[in-house]
Design a protein around this nucleic acid. Sequence first.
DNA 1: GCTAATAGCGAACGGTCGTTAGGTTAAAGT
DNA 2: ACTTTAACCTAACGACCGTTCGCTATTAGC
Lengths: 200, 200
Amino acid sequence: MSPRKSVAETAATRDRIIESALALASAEGLEGLTIGRLATELEMSKAGVIGHFGSKEGLQLAVLDAATERFRMRVPARAVGARPGTERLTRAFHEWIDYMSQDEGHGGCFLTSAAGEFDGRPGTVRDRVLAALDAWSAYVTAELTTAVENRELPERTDVEQLAFELNGVALAANQSIQLHRDPQAPTRARRAVARLLIAP
Amino acid sequence: MSPRKSVAETAATRDRIIESALALASAEGLEGLTIGRLATELEMSKAGVIGHFGSKEGLQLAVLDAATERFRMRVPARAVGARPGTERLTRAFHEWIDYMSQDEGHGGCFLTSAAGEFDGRPGTVRDRVLAALDAWSAYVTAELTTAVENRELPERTDVEQLAFELNGVALAANQSIQLHRDPQAPTRARRAVARLLIAP
DNA sequence: GCTAATAGCGAACGGTCGTTAGGTTAAAGT
DNA sequence: ACTTTAACCTAACGACCGTTCGCTATTAGC
């Protein structure tokens, strides 16, 4: 029917699969993602889809990596222009909140949802989710430490505690957006971040 | 093989199924819960299991209701002894944190995980999850309002905002416990609650 | 004691799952 | 021009899914 693809187009097919898979997994979860439905949506055979990833787990990992990369490009990468410390962190969280708010096919943060889905299922997928979250957590902690050093936050600040609470704000925003569809969620989240990062 | 059960024992069987299902669904999610595995674990036939609920969705709803009831008995019911306002709320959140921490077969809060699982899947299950969360949210808001009336919190307090942030603390605790297995999570969560509920 | 109701079983149903084997076709390498 | 590689296909695999259909055995009501 359609002509064969060149090697250059092959990577494009892979990307096309991942994009579709990302959308599907956003709605149904990473485990609910199904090769058959993916193939139907892409008008390909199941074998043609899975051939690019070897197995379903390979597909899940590829989707996860794509989502992680997307998060990185969307959140911390957009905050590099801001001054290190509370300013950069505030910017990063605002970007994250905006990212969760926009409805580009899905709603909420893919990584956050995947974390909730695989928290009780040992395996490679869970490990990869954890690694992504740890990287983000390290980023937040580092910026908070810088903020303390710059006297933007009190010297006695418990950095780990503050990171914990900031994470809570993001989780609350994610739930408010995805489950409750509350249009005020972004405003609330931004206000909460400000309360945490602006010394009283 | 085994003798038939009386009507009184019938309800016991139902409870036994739900208990097993609750454990299974805690590990695999409400959708990952499977009639076949449930039957194997209970040493029953699939038909014998599903007969009590009519369909898988019926089973999911029953499990959800059981989890909701368990939450109610475990969290707000244990806080009735405390004085309305910040005291009762603090007690309730401490109970919730303890509830999430204990490893009675699972870890974390079942309702919270179910909320994350069904946030993007319209249907009866999602509606029931939302109703349970709304009831809890109303409880928190009511106690916060009482606290403001009692001058335990500043008059200008944004009650909805505070409820949002408290919810975030609980979500962070749930993630820290289930995903990261951080033993410090309960301490962090209690400290965060105190920072929010004790006026500066 | 007889009848009706019901808990639970065994077996099968049509579907879908993830995966594999083999074939076809186009491009790449030589 | 011939061979190799690789993308993608069709077809089938065994396993499991949720659900349904009788059937048996027990209990409850009369």
